[in-house]
Design a protein around this nucleic acid. Structure first.
Length: 424
RNA sequence: GGAGGGGUGGCAGAGUGGUUGAAUGCGGCGGUCUUGAAAACCGUUGAGGUGUUACAGCCUCCGGGGGUUCGAAUCCCUCCCCCUCCGCCA
């Protein structure tokens, strides 16, 4: 959510940002409702001030045993008037809030204006012996997983539906190894604090991080209990501090957490959805940071490097993309994607997304902090990044580590976790 | 799922319709005293909105929402959460 005052004072700036993000411009509508709202506030507050004063007077009269019937009758009218205006005000506030919930975060000034094709490759990394040249005919992860008996998409479809993968034997162990490796790495090397949070959250949490209302149709929903299976651990972890005022000394806060992630992915089928490329349930290790506003862009760079470190340890070729404004998510001000190389598909696959939300989520979720020398709380900045999603990583590992014989070597850093060094 | 109890400021804890945004204690901050510290004493200490160049002023907030009333932390309805007991259960 953007600051209403900011919109009021910088309408053109906001409009430009919305345009660059390809979102719907409701600024004029917001300003109009806001104007009306403030007018009503002025009127009601005058009436309420009067009511408060006279009501006190009535109390005094009654205590003194005097008659107050006449003023009470007069106040009844005032009270009715207040009620009328309050009703109107309530409606305007609801309307205004609804409008504000649909305004996207504005892209940071360092974000290139444009669409997906305007994303900028910032850097690229690969192991020394790596080559884009095909050394043999790679099996893609689906064929390979099937052949090795470590992945079973058909049975997953039977027990749940398509997009719910089953991991078997060494596949399941490898998945678990990855999760543990990544968690431990971020905890030990990057000083994150681990949290294990609920996989089901309420609507307030979903609003807090910006999934609702916009992404409603992409969410699973348990109607009986009004709970949403989380699309990412970003939601519960960021909402840890919803409605809290932290102290300056608390910051920065760095959390890392594992969760299963649930996404309906409504309307996305076809080639892109083969195997692990698009699933309804996957596992992810997520990093979330709460920082002071002036620190958030340095924190973003560090966050990207933290995610990259995992890929370097795993020796997976990858590149870092700075997303253009039109490719940014609703809540993000700036975002880097990490893409890993798939030798079977011969293309880059998104494996991580690291974003700075500035105060957008903090304002929605009401997460503030107080500086030592100031009494007024201010909104902090939130960031998060996948560190990383295992399903996409599994594709990279299975494909990049496969041998001409169709076996898969376990990356060295994972071997202590798996207890074996080759699959097949 | 059933029965009962409860949600008040950073924390603890008063307050059942009339200057109560809220006693008191602790904590925090400032000061006096002290070489310094502690103790003691004095003062101060919630958030949001509206408004103002900035103050002031005014309004709202005692779990959330709605209602009764001239007036609600206090009464009513509803939802949420916590605790105790019973039932069920990994």
């Amino acid at each position: 959510m953007l600051d209403l005052k900011f919109i009021r004072e910088n309408p053109e700036l906001v409009k430009q940002g919305i345009k660059n993000k390809n979102e719907k411009d409701t600024v004029d509508q917001i300003l109009e409702v806001d104007k009306k709202r403030r007018e009503i506030i002025r009127i009601t507050e005058e009436l309420k001030a009067k009511r408060n004063k006279v009501s006190q007077e009535i109390g005094r009269l009654k205590k003194a045993g005097e008659n107050a019937d006449e003023i009470i009758a007069e106040m009844k009218k005032v009270s009715d008037e207040i009620k009328m205006h309050d009703d109107e005000l309530r409606k305007l506030n609801e309307k205004l809030n609804e409008l504000l919930m649909w305004v996207p975060n504005l892209p940071h000034e360092s974000v290139p204006v444009g669409q997906e094709e305007d994303n900028v490759e910032v850097r690229r990394w690969a192991p020394e012996d790596f080559s884009f040249e095909k050394e043999f005919d790679y099996l893609d992860h689906v064929e390979l997983g099937k052949k090795l008996g470590i992945l079973d998409f058909e049975r997953g479809a039977k027990i749940s539906g398509s997009g719910f993968p089953v991991y078997l034997g060494k596949g399941a162990i490898l998945e678990r190894a990855l999760i543990n490796f990544m968690l431990n790495y971020h905890i030990q090397k990057h000083a994150y604090k681990e949290v294990l949070t609920p996989f089901l959250v309420n609507a307030d949490s979903m609003k807090g991080t910006g999934q609702l209302p916009k992404m409603q149709d992409d969410m699973y929903f348990c109607e009986k209990d009004n709970l949403y299976p989380i699309p990412t651990a970003e939601v519960p972890i960021t909402n840890l501090h919803r409605d809290e005022i932290l102290t300056e000394d608390d910051l920065p806060l760095k959390y890392v957490g594992f969760s299963a992630c649930f996404r309906r992915e409504a309307g996305s089928y076809g080639k892109e959805s083969k195997g692990f490329l698009r699933v309804h349930q996957f596992n992810k290790v997520e990093m979330v940071k709460f920082v002071k506003p002036e620190d958030s862009y340095n924190a973003l760079e560090a966050l990207v490097k933290d995610a990259e470190d995992i890929l370097k340890e795993l020796k997976i070729p990858h590149r870092v993309l700075l997303l253009a404004s039109g490719d940014l998510s609703f809540a993000a001000a700036k975002c880097y994607d990490l893409e890993t190389w798939s030798p079977a598909e011969e293309k880059w696959l998104e494996a991580s997304s690291c974003s700075n939300f500035e105060s957008f989520q903090a304002r929605r979720a009401n997460i503030r902090f107080r500086r030592k020398d100031s009494k007024k709380p201010e909104f902090l900045h939130t960031l998060n990044g996948s560190g990383l999603a295992t399903s996409r990583l599994m594709v990279s590992i299975l494909e990049n580590y496969q041998t001409p014989e169709g076996k898969v070597i376990v990356p060295k850093v994972l071997q202590p976790y798996t207890g074996f060094n080759i699959i097949g």
